[in-house]
Nucleic acid binder design. Structure first.
Lengths: 94, 94
DNA sequence: CAAGGTACCTTGTGATGCAAGATAGATTTT
DNA sequence: AAAATCTATCTTGCATCACAAGGTACCTTG
């Protein structure tokens, strides 16, 4: 969901998502590359190559319309989940 | 974390946690029993048997002092995590 | 030319959630 | 009284997936 949300703002490439964009929500390279392939298989993103000024060409990912719909759905599920957890956590406290 | 939070309010047994207490955050029996053993191994809970009015005796779990500390720690981590995710989700939108 | 940064990717291991089934006591139904 | 259902415990096997570690290759800088 976080990767989809990031790509919703601007196209991006895996290495960048891992290193910079994910500040608090950390992810390693061993996670992102299989994940991106899954997103591609599910047709939530498309991909295109673009030259980089330094290093090898980058594989950019762009959200599809289906990806945007999926993101909205995941967001709604996420917020419902957070509400449920907070209901359990906050039953007396804090 | 949710199981610890539930046990923080009152001692409980696995079957009950799975069926009733977890309304939104669902969990199956194949999950809870190994989980309770892990919590026990980590000394976050202690256990005792109590007769039931119907069915076999119940194995109740009680939070230890360490369990309470762990819960506080997990809660803080959870809330930081939610904040980080919301920061990613809400970078432009609603 | 060696070192380090950028960027891609794969393999193997470990954790863990769940469906499915086993066991067994108590109650309810037929 | 036998059968079914509910309570409650637990195990086994499968699938998912995150990550560490390693590999490849390009480009820049010392």
């Amino acid at each position: 969901m976080c990767v989809l949300a990031i790509l919703d703002q601007a196209d991006g490439y895996a290495y960048d998502i891992v290193t910079k964009l994910a500040g608090g929500v950390e992810m390693s390279e061993g996670t992102i590359y299989p994940l991106m392939r899954r997103l591609q298989n599910d047709e939530l993103v498309t991909t295109y190559l673009a030259e980089s000024e330094q290093g090898p060409p980058r594989k950019y990912y762009r959200l599809t319309a289906q990806g945007r719909r999926e993101l909205q759905k995941l967001k709604a599920e996420w917020r419902a989940f957070v509400a449920d957890v907070e209901k359990i956590l906050g039953e007396d406290n804090e």
